[in-house]
Amino acid sequence: MRLRIRFAKLGKVRFTSHRDVARIWERALRKAALPVAYSEGFSPRPKLSFGLALSTGFESHAEYLDIQLKEQDGGEAAPWDRTTADDMARRLDEALPVGIDVLAVAPTDRGGDSLQQAVVSCTWAIDIDDLDTEQAAEQVARLLAAEQIVVERERKGRIVCEDIRHQVLALDVSEATETGVRLLADLGTQPRALRPEELLAAMDPSLEARSVCRMHQWMLQEDARVEPLTVDAVPAPLAEVRA
């Protein structure tokens, strides 16, 4: 059986790297005694697959992890119900550090695209200091009005010029904060994700974030935008899983 887990990364642990988080999960799964399947060979590794990497220092309410579990004897998977999900979420939460919180757990299909292939965009909350909502709105309007926004990006060690305008799917001033303003940005991830820092650098004048938080990851299903696992589903016995 394959499980999909949605988790948050908040607070001090946001300074751990993507690799760190993978190691933290490997230990947590052993502590929680989940029957994770292992690869064959000289160096068996647990079969885990993480979604899009989150930059070190960013927070998130929408991180995803798929776990392949060992096949049960007899080939028939144990029935999935609310108790199973509750119990699993609780065991994992206890095994994880403060700030990495399990939001939803649900079985998912074996086949289908990987998380990295399936996700087409992410919604980011970006807090900027020393900027009021009016100034922010002007900047946002200027950026959205541009037909193209060409930036220099590094690709395979070479600097290339790319237009990123089409990857800014939405950009709004969300609200005023105590020290400035919060922007909400929906940024494309295919074929290569537009990062919030790249967006801020392309604004006029360029901005720097005080903090960045991933709020959602989105995939397309028959032209509708859906999440890989919805938080309403916590603890997710009947969560609608799409893959």
Partner: peptide, 19 residues
Amino acid sequence: LERVLGEVQKPARYIGCED
């Protein structure tokens, strides 16, 4: 500290939070 950790390499060195 959290305001300046974005400026340094390997900020996880400074957060504690170990099991």
